[in-house]
Design a protein around this nucleic acid. Structure first.
Length: 443
RNA sequence: GGCUCCAUCGUCUAACGGUUAGGACGCCAGGUUUUCAUCCUGGAAAUCGGAGUUCGAUUCUCCGUGGAGUCACCA
């Protein structure tokens, strides 16, 4: 299907009428992967022929999205800068009698130009969907330009694809019904037909079109929430494509290496945010501490300011607890790790210190823990060492009865890291100080 | 409604016409240093329905049903 002599040229053609959407992103990724796979050319074309709806800020958002995801393109075009080319082809079509001036346009700035519908059946072979045949007679002589200066979508697309030598049109299945009329148009202009690959759509959990109702649809929104470029690309590539192995985590290079349109799915796929979260955590797990700190950003820096030593020791705990930066921010906002920095105040009532045990027994346990930790060699202080000092006692007296009070006194929370980790991070002096504080509640 | 496309666990998906229909997310249970998280092990969970072709259909054909897309002087 792919001739060695003919190098691949693909394009992504978003219109700047809204924030760059994850659905469009998937199309962009497939185009990018296909181009890289075949050492081809990847064109980014801004389709801004609709002057009313196109906005500079949206174009910037498209560019920002591509930059963030490092989806590099070989050329950037704006349709608004190519009107002379469209005008040329419009004139050719009119000269040849394949298009003609119709009624006055709505703006009253000239007469619309209609394409003389050949009234035939158009067949094409889609790489993903196979053979498709459609009778375009019902379309009538559709409008291809508001006037000679203002061409419309179907026309600009085929002129650009032809002019830019696009070999493969890879786009969403929502364009499948546009394809026959575009083929008729492009052949009227004398262009060679590209190959088509129509990608299955991405749906919301209720199987309807993905929209704002189901959380972020803007690519840059995912960046703000703290999804990494690797995770997002990995995730999007796996909706509608699968290499046929059990592998789930792919780098962009691996994706390029394994990519093929033949393995693309025919049916629409639901955007499964839980899997994206899981993937993001998986990618976060690959980050070095330095990279992870940079990822966490200003909220982490804020913690460093409070206590650099404590904060740096928190890194592995944070890493295994969050899927995204957003969760990290929520974690800090909810005071999840506050007890590392200040004495917990949550346990004003002694009852919360023991769970299934009794006050009397718990006091004994705390006394014993204090006694043992008092004798600890501070130079050896870490979680394994602390565990070795307390483990036999905990096993003997009941792990829950001994360890829960210890953990609760140190953290003041029902949920926290294990008591030995708490001890390691807090340090011997602080641990003893808190234990004494907790013990005092019994007196 | 016309036209077009699609149809495997809840979700993403795998399976030269011959498999106990596999994996992953999520869920449930158990375990790992009480709790949370991580991690490990196990479990529940699917071929839309009906005909046909075939020794044999998830797989091929037809019909039905369901879903989606599209029918602009938007893209």
């Amino acid at each position: 299907m792919l001739h060695e002599s003919q190098s691949v040229v693909v394009r992504m053609a978003p219109s700047p009428t809204g924030l760059f959407h994850v659905g469009s992103l998937r199309t962009a990724i497939f185009n990018y992967l296909f181009a890289k796979k075949h050492n081809g050319t990847f064109i980014l074309r801004i389709e801004d022929t609709d002057k009313e709806r196109s906005r500079a800020e949206y174009e910037q958002n498209i560019l920002d999205s591509f930059a963030w995801l490092e989806l590099s393109y070989d050329a950037l075009y704006r349709q608004s800068e190519r009107t002379t080319i469209y005008k040329k082809y419009l004139e050719i079509l009119i000269d040849q009698g394949k298009a003609y001036y119709g009624e006055e346009n709505k703006e009253g700035t000239g007469r619309v130009i209609r394409f003389k519908n050949p009234g035939t059946t158009i067949s094409f072979t889609d790489i993903i969907l196979g053979d498709i045949t459609v009778d375009i007679t019902d379309l009538g002589d559709f409008v291809i330009a508001r006037d000679i200066e203002n061409p419309l979508y179907h026309f600009t697309v085929i002129v650009d694809d032809g002019d830019m030598g696009v070999t493969h049109v890879i786009r969403g299945q929502d364009h499948i019904s546009n394809t026959p009329r575009q083929i008729a148009l492009l052949e009227a202009c004398g262009f060679q037909r590209p190959q088509y690959a129509h990608l299955p759509l991405i749906l919301a959990p209720d199987k309807t079109k993905l929209s704002k109702r189901y959380g972020a649809v803007a690519v840059t929104g995912y960046r703000e929430d703290g999804y990494t470029r690797e995770a997002l690309i990995n995730f999007m590539a796996l909706i509608g494509w699968n290499p046929g192995t059990d592998q789930e985590v792919f780098s962009v290079d691996e994706l390029i290496d394994m990519f093929s349109l033949e393995k693309a799915q025919k049916s629409a796929g639901v955007f499964n945010k839980e899997k994206l979260d899981w993937l993001n955590k998986a990618w976060l797990g690959k980050l070095s501490d330095e990279a992870f700190i940079e990822y966490l950003g200003s909220d982490y820096t804020e913690l460093v300011r409070r206590d650099a030593r404590i904060t740096s020791s928190l890194i592995p705990l944070i890493k295994e607890r969050i899927h995204t930066r957003r969760e990290f921010i929520e974690l800090i906002r909810d005071g999840e790790f506050e007890y590392f920095y200040t004495l917990p105040t949550a346990y004003t009532a002694a009852e919360s210190i023991w769970k299934t045990s009794t006050a009397e027994k718990t006091e004994v346990h705390i006394q014993e823990i204090i006694r043992r930790l008092n004798q600890a060699d501070e130079s050896q202080w870490n979680k394994d060492y602390v565990k070795s000092l307390l483990w036999d006692y905990a096993e003997q007296e009941g792990k829950g009865d001994v360890l829960w009070p210890l953990r609760f006194i140190l953290s003041g929370r029902d949920k926290s890291p294990d008591p030995f980790t708490l001890c390691e991070i807090l340090g011997k002096d602080e641990v003893l100080r808190r234990l004494e504080y907790g013990r005092a509640l019994f007196i």
